[in-house]
């Protein structure tokens, strides 16, 4: 029985990756929720929006690297975020102008928006592959670890190490900063309140003189920020591969729906629920059990509930359960 080592192992393999992944999902789900709250459709193109944001961040990273501008020990991609966000704002506003605005004026059904966003998803995916190619890009430079497993072992004298990657720390810090800024904007500023008002009751917002075009523009701007940061952080953490973002769409939507579509707090909670479920269920508990149980009980197999190949099934199952039990999600979503 070795409780301390077991806990460290859990922290190393579940807590730390879970927090980082949860932050990425939360940011992604916030983007979905903003679009849903204002434009009232589920944006299937959001995964590719994240991917495109990450791609721009990488392109600018290369530019900065070639100019010799780095911010070691931080990875250079962080520097690329700001121009990438600007590019994504432009891209999203262009797509809104040429795709969604028409359907808004037509007051088309939500499912038409859904189909249009699917079209945009593949168009964006094609453009990404066209520009950066379908291969994996390594994006982490600078210091790889904040704390190495070996250092932790030396420090504490335990068998188990606890490693924290720079990318994980940056992910969490950036996510916290963005979420705080977003909530400050929505709760405290006049523009933010007008967004909430529009999301709450569109007609009354119009009667109050709130300009719908402006609200929509702000919504896409927020989406660009959230998606670019989420996409770049995911790429920084796991390596950038253009096709992974399509698969990320499922956990991102699951997070948003589990929390309650349209509810920002719900998106954050949902992100962590999905992330921790995924990490926990696909983790092989053999090591932890070895520390906790008497030797005779040591398991033969990995004691892994589900192979990592099925991690998407986890978010799907949670999604299905939520849809059956409480279709509006934990926070009864609807408005920003």
């Amino acid at each position: 029985m070795d409780l301390l080592n077991a806990l460290v192992a859990l922290a190393n393999y579940i807590l730390v990756p879970g927090i980082a992944y949860g932050s990425q999902l939360a940011l992604g789900a916030l983007g979905v929720t903003v679009v849903y709250g204002i434009l009232r459709f589920s944006n299937f193109a959001h995964g590719e929006t994240m991917s495109a944001g990450a791609m721009f961040a990488i392109l600018f990273m290369w530019l900065f690297q070639s100019l010799g501008i780095t911010i070691a020990p931080l990875p250079t991609i962080v520097l690329g975020l700001i121009p990438a966000i600007l590019c994504m704002i432009v891209y999203l506003l262009i797509t809104d102008r040429f795709v969604y605005r028409y359907y808004r004026e037509q007051k088309a059904k939500p499912v038409i928006f859904l189909v249009a966003s699917t079209g945009l998803m593949f168009l964006t995916n094609g453009i990404i592959r066209f520009i950066i190619g379908p291969d994996e890009q390594r994006v982490s430079d600078g210091a790889r670890f904040v704390m190495k497993a070996r250092e932790f072992k030396q420090l504490t004298g335990l068998n188990e190490g606890l490693a924290i990657k720079t990318s994980q720390l940056i992910t969490v810090l950036a996510a916290v900063a963005i979420v705080v800024a977003l909530f400050w904007f929505l709760e405290k500023t006049k523009s933010g309140k007008s967004m909430r008002a529009y999301s709450d009751n569109e007609n009354l917002a119009l009667l109050s003189g709130i300009n719908p075009d402006r609200v929509v523009m702000i919504a896409w701007t927020l989406t660009a920020i959230l998606a670019t940061v989420a996409g770049a952080l995911y790429g920084l953490d796991k390596g950038y591969k253009p096709f992974t973002y399509l698969q990320l769409l499922l956990p991102v939507f699951a997070s948003a729906i589990v929390g309650g579509l349209g509810s920002p707090i719900g998106a954050i909670v949902g992100g962590f629920v999905i992330a921790f479920s995924e990490v926990t269920i696909t983790y092989a508990f053999k090591k932890v059990i070895k520390y906790l149980a008497p030797d005779a009980w040591a398991p033969e197999g990995l004691v892994q509930l589900l192979s990592t190949d099925y991690k998407f099934a986890v978010s799907f199952v949670i999604l299905v359960v939520v849809l059956i039990v409480m279709p509006t999600g934990i926070f009864k979503g609807k408005s920003l």
Partner: peptide, 12 residues
């Protein structure tokens, strides 16, 4: 605006 406070309703 149901999710906003009375004061924010008036501000809107």
């Amino acid at each position: 605006f149901p999710s906003m406070t009375v004061e924010d309703n008036l501000r809107m």
